Simulated assay, not measured.
Amino acid sequence: MTNSGPTSRGKLYIVATPIGNLEDISQRAIRILNEVALIAAEDTRHSQKLLSHYQIGTRLLSLHEHNERQRADQLLSKLGNGMDLALISDAGTPLISDPGYALVNLCREAGIDVIPIPGPCAAITALCAAGLPTDKFSFKGFLPVKEMARREALGALKGDSGTCIFYEAPRRIADTVKMLVEELGPHRQLVLAKELTKTFETFKSGDAEQVLAWLLEDPLHQKGEFVLMVGPDLNVNESLPQQALDLLDSLLEVLPLKKAAAITASHYGLKKNELYQLGLQRQGR
C-alpha cells in the first residue's frame, strides 16, 4: 500500500492484535497488515508468529522502548515518502503501556494521518468481565518497580470513587496485593484477571485479604500476565451528598434496593440508576 504522487504522504495505522487467542483479530486488521509496506513491531520474533499464522508476508521492523526515538525518525521519513506503515505491539492495543507514543506524536506534528484499527486491550477486556463499576474507571498502567513508589501509588487510592486498573508482573503480584491490604485495608474489593483469552484464563474476586490468601495458597496462582483491578472506596462518593447516602443506607435496611434507590433519587433529585449501582456496591461490602 504505497501512495502515488509527488506530494502524497503515507498513513500510519495503529493496529491492535490479540492478547492471547489468535482468533481475536479483525478482518480489517489482517487486511491492513497485508497491505502496508512495513510493520513496526515491539518484538519481531514474537510478532512473526502472528503474521505466519495469517500468512501475512509484510516485512517487520523492530520498534521498542530502547530504540523508539531513533526508529520514530526513520519511520517518519518513510511515511513522508509515501509509504503506508503499521504499528503493532506484542499483544493488544499499541501505546497502552507499550511503545509508540514518540512515533505517533511525531506523525501528528508532521501532519501524517494516524489511523487506529481497534481491537483487544487487556485493561478493557478485564474490566468488562470483572463485576466492578464501569461507569467511572482509570487506567494506571504498570505500578512502579521500587517499593516506596509503589506503596505511595497504592496509598493514593484512598478515597478514590472509581475502579482503578493496573498491570502487574507475576514476580510482584503477591507483594503488591499485600501492600494493598496494608494501605487500603483488608476489605477493599479487588479483582485479579490473569492469562486473559488463553487456556487458563482466571478471574479471582474478593476483598484484598481474600485475594492475597488465594495468591499465597499455590505458587501457580502467581504465574501469568495479570490485570489488577481495585474497586472504589465505598465510603466515598464525590458526586452524591452525604445525606443521600445516609438515606439510601437506612432504606436498604427495610426496603428492596430498587425501591430504596427510587425513593432516594426522588427525594434529592438524583439519578435512580446511579443510586441503584451504588446500592449494589454497598450491599456487597
Rank of each mutant, 00 (worst) to 15 (best):
T2P: 00
T7L: 12
Y13R: 08
I14P: 00
V15A: 07
T17E: 06
P18L: 02
D24P: 01
R31T: 10
L33E: 01
N34G: 14
E35K: 13
T44K: 02
H46T: 11
H46L: 08
H46S: 12
K49R: 15
K49D: 10
L51H: 13
Y54W: 14
R59I: 07
S62E: 11
H66F: 15
L75P: 02
S77K: 13
K78Y: 10
G82N: 10
L85P: 03
A86P: 11
L87A: 05
L87S: 11
I88W: 04
P99F: 05
Y101H: 14
L103N: 11
P118R: 03
C121A: 13
A130M: 04
L132S: 01
K136R: 15
F139P: 12
V145A: 14
K146A: 06
K146T: 05
E147L: 11
M148G: 10
M148S: 15
R151H: 10
A153Q: 14
A153D: 05
L154K: 09
G155K: 09
A156L: 10
L157S: 03
K158T: 13
D160P: 00
S161R: 05
T163A: 03
T163F: 04
Y167R: 05
R172M: 04
A174G: 05
D175I: 05
D175E: 13
D175C: 04
T176I: 09
V181S: 00
E182P: 00
H187K: 13
V191I: 02
V191S: 02
E195R: 00
T197K: 00
K198V: 10
E201N: 10
T202R: 03
K204Y: 06
S205K: 15
D207M: 09
A208W: 07
E209D: 08
A213L: 11
L215I: 04
L215N: 03
L216F: 01
L216Q: 15
D218T: 01
D218V: 07
Q222K: 13
E225D: 14
P232C: 12
V236L: 11
N237V: 12
L251I: 00
E253I: 01
V254H: 07
L255E: 08
P256Q: 00
T264M: 06
H267Y: 13
Y268T: 09
G269A: 08
K271A: 14
K272L: 04
N273C: 10
N273H: 14
L275N: 09
Q277F: 12
L280S: 08
G284A: 15
